[in-house]
Nucleic acid binder design. Structure first.
Lengths: 125, 125
DNA sequence: CAATCATTTCAACATCTGTTCATATGTTCA
DNA sequence: TGAACATATGAACAGATGTTGAAATGATTG
């Protein structure tokens, strides 16, 4: 009825069945990998990286961050919302002013880990 | 001619000049922060995370990765190209087949660093 | 060389994402 | 309470990104 080439045209060929099986079995659940990608996605924007880099140095309020980066308060506030939802920053309110800071050392570690990676790459390894 | 409120309407207000100055001085060059964001951007896609997670376990060829993830060879190849350009994976050719693997331990470290972060968050910290 | 196969590349489409502008909260102080 | 101010939010637009299907490479084998 169908020859093998017709069927294969709609399927992905497997060359090493044993490796595929092993890898599929060892793969973390989709949801965790999805969450991991979401985490890195938050780090993957230069505005947010700049904000994190600033907060690495000192706790700051929104308008000071905006001034330091030369951007709109609105834009900064939007990105702080993203960072907040990802639990990368925490904040405290003091009167009208809201101060932001890094949530925990984990953020700092990921940040610095990535940094040393690009240093390694661009220095000819 | 202009009063201060008119001028301020077009500018970002600074509350703590000292902090702003200090942070601006300590900020890494824009180019480095941009590259850092680009690096995390590569990690920030669930397909690429799945590929990296698979390669963490075993060296694999394109069609086996496609089979393991249930995706098109074209899509996988495209993402492998992104990972290759970011120097996150390396490859070797053996006849018709191209085998991909993680480029260095740094990749593994960033991956696992991020993983432990989301574990921490979702376990109620 | 011709056929086959693994992989890559291309163009196109749909979706996602960041910024802007305008407006809404919420707080302080007169 | 009302004016001034710091921040947050919503809608909308522009640009970036991932997947797809088709066509193009590059490599092996008969």
């Amino acid at each position: 009825m169908f020859n093998s080439s017709e069927i294969d045209n709609c399927e992905v060929r497997i060359i090493h069945q044993d490796v595929v099986d092993k890898v599929v079995a060892s793969l973390p659940p989709d949801e965790e990998l999805y969450d991991l990608a979401e985490l890195f996605k938050v780090f993957g924007d230069s505005t947010r990286i700049k904000i994190l880099s600033a907060l690495l140095e000192h706790e700051m309020c929104v308008c000071d961050i905006a001034a330091a980066l030369g951007m709109t308060q609105s834009a900064i506030s939007h990105q702080l919302g993203v960072l907040k939802r990802a639990k990368l920053v925490k904040f405290r309110r003091e009167g009208k002013v809201v101060y932001y800071s890094l949530d925990d050392d984990h953020v700092k570690q990921v940040f610095e880990q990535g940094f040393s990676h690009i240093k390694e790459i661009y220095s000819g390894k």
